[in-house]
């Protein structure tokens, strides 16, 4: 049984994540879209989806939530960041004019266009393989190298390699998922990744936050 809160800060595609979670939830579980700190305190699991630019995302979090309190709450229960919900956990993003992020994971958010072969199509949009670099409850019943759906123009580069949960190759290998304690975050979209995506969401719901 889980009571899941999906953080809505006004710019995510929260509905598709909500629909996918509803598909895998059991009868006794609930899912709520919210931006209230009370809801985040009360729930058992937090999902943080997101699209858009990091700077706007930070502005919106700041506007809707007390960042100090927010960081405290999300250190206490299973947390899943998706796409921008991964990038915003880092120290700094070079998107737009550059923006400080939540600094929960050490590292930067870099532009695909600047770092990789200039002939590559950006955004990195489509299905790609996810190589599991660490054992983790999220990977339950998901084959190593399974395909997930990506849409992004920036990627994360963590300072500490031990935070890398998976890597994916797009001209070069980049971290496609990171983790630390109760926090897991993925660059791809499990809510759009068919059977394997739903399985990952199900694994998250069943996760108690311990590794």
């Amino acid at each position: 049984m889980a009571d899941i809160a999906i953080i809505d800060y006004g710019m995510g595609n929260v509905h598709s994540v909500c629909k996918a979670l509803n598909k895998v939830l059991d009868k006794n579980s609930t899912v709520k879209i919210t931006n209230s700190l009370n809801d985040l305190s009360d729930c058992s699991h937090i999902v943080f989806p997101g699209q858009g630019a990091a700077s706007e995302c930070m502005i919106n979090i700041d506007k809707n939530l007390d960042i100090v309190e927010f960081k405290k709450i999300i250190s206490q229960k299973p947390f899943l960041g998706i796409c921008m919900g991964l990038q915003v956990l880092m120290t700094h993003s070079e998107e737009n004019e550059g923006s400080n992020c939540l600094n929960i994971l050490d590292g930067k958010v870099l532009s695909i266009k600047r770092k990789m072969n200039s002939n590559l199509k950006v955004p990195h949009m489509g299905w790609n393989k996810v190589k599991q670099e660490s054992k983790h409850p999220l990977w339950g019943n998901i084959p190593n190298g399974a395909f997930f759906y990506f849409v992004h123009s920036y990627f994360v580069k963590p300072l500490d390699k031990s935070n890398v949960l998976s890597t994916t190759n797009y001209d070069l290998d980049f971290a496609s998922a990171l983790y630390k304690d109760n926090i897991a975050a993925v660059q791809f979209h499990p809510e759009k990744s068919s059977k394997m995506g739903l399985r990952l969401l199900e694994n998250f719901i069943n996760w108690n936050g311990e590794i």
């Binding site: 629909k19 996918a20 509803n22 598909k23 759906y149 809510e191 759009k192 068919s194 995506g197 739903l198």
Partner: peptide, 8 residues
């Protein structure tokens, strides 16, 4: 469709 099919 979006409630039942989870691909883009």
């Amino acid at each position: 469709v979006a409630c039942e099919v989870f691909i883009p």
